[in-house]
């Protein structure tokens, strides 16, 4: 890790205030993201994984500066963008793009695919500072359609004429229109059928090979995270509990939550003996009232008295990854 990271979060927090003075019990603070630090190097994929409500999407939105974080800093290409205003962010926007989960709701049904994909090209000027000409836009559209595996004549159709997988390709084409350095993909393959999901995972990987795009890949599906990312960060209740090389984390998880998460994934394999299953008790606690000490102690099979009081910090494990646990699995 010698070169400067493309994007970096330092002690990033995003707290939402819920309810006002007049709501019963007074205002509450939802700690969606709490003191998260991570770096993403150029050309790599960082996988963000966790269950619903763990703050992975909020973190992605903070990195994209769709939210203004309430604490910590975000550095994009070495530049502090934590509190940069919308106007000053505009020149940076083409460099960072997002692909969403549901292509049906992120594509306006009343506009043709060509208009949808051309929108970023119309909004943002080219690298030379001049607006894109119509001919430039048309040429780029044809190029983009080819890049994502669609045909040029699809540009004149409407989103409803496409299948889910093709609509996700349109969403990707739109995100790539301005040659972004960073793409944050938030559950971009979760809504797709398995047979189609594999196509889109392959597309994401091919695009990275060809264009050197950096991904922050957010998903709840561990097998997709393992396939996509070289490094993984596992989140639980707003905090990163384990981060490091994907191979290490999947082969030798150190945090009991990561271990339970990986062992809980049903695997389509009937050959061998049954794997050791760690079944967690109960549900994820509310992020409005995270448990004291280690956030995971209420469900942790290895929790001891210390875990109920003292919050563990991320520290290096024998496998080389970082984990926030007093009594790690390895």
């Amino acid at each position: 890790m010698t070169s400067a990271p493309l994007i970096e979060a330092k002690n990033l927090s995003m707290h939402f205030k819920l309810g006002g003075r007049f709501s019963p019990g007074g205002p509450q603070v939802l700690r969606a993201v709490d003191d998260v630090s991570l770096t993403v190097q150029r050309g790599e994929t960082l996988g963000l994984v966790g269950e619903s409500g763990c703050g992975k999407s909020t973190l992605g939105r903070c990195l994209m500066r769709l939210y203004r974080p309430t604490g910590g800093t975000v550095l994009f290409e070495g530049r502090d963008i934590t509190a940069t205003g919308n106007r000053a962010l505009r020149p940076l926007r083409p460099r960072m793009q997002m692909v969403f989960q549901d292509p049906a709701s992120s594509l306006n049904p009343r506009r043709r695919v060509g208009d949808l994909v051309a929108e970023p090209l119309k909004v943002h000027p080219g690298p030379d500072g001049k607006a894109h000409s119509r001919a430039e836009i048309r040429a780029r559209l044809v190029e983009l359609m080819d890049l994502v595996g669609l045909q040029a004549d699809h540009l004149d159709r409407y989103p409803h004429e496409f299948s889910g997988g093709q609509r996700q390709r349109i969403g990707i084409a739109r995100a790539l229109a301005l040659n972004p350095a960073l793409v944050v993909a938030d559950e971009s393959v979760s809504a797709l059928d398995v047979s189609v999901q594999a196509q889109i995972v392959n597309l994401f990987m091919d695009l990275q090979d060809r264009l050197g795009i950096t991904y922050v890949f957010i998903a709840h599906d561990l097998s997709v995270i393992r396939q996509m990312s070289r490094r993984t960060a596992v989140m639980y209740l707003g905090a990163v509990v384990e981060t490091g090389s994907t191979d290490t984390i999947f082969a030798q998880p150190a945090h009991p939550y990561t271990g339970a998460l990986i062992s809980a994934v049903p695997v389509p394999d009937v050959s061998g003996a049954r794997r050791e299953r760690i079944i967690l008790r109960g549900d994820v606690p509310s992020p409005l009232k995270p448990p004291p000490g280690c956030r995971f102690h209420t469900r942790c099979p290895k929790a001891q008295d210390r875990c109920r009081v003292e919050p563990p910090l991320l520290r290096p494990m024998t496998g080389g990854q970082l984990a926030a646990c007093h009594y790690p699995l390895v």
Partner: peptide, 14 residues
């Protein structure tokens, strides 16, 4: 289906 164990294929067989 992307595998959870063993070698990670370069491409999935879609």
């Amino acid at each position: 289906i992307p595998p959870m164990h063993g070698v990670r294929p370069h491409r999935l067989i879609a």
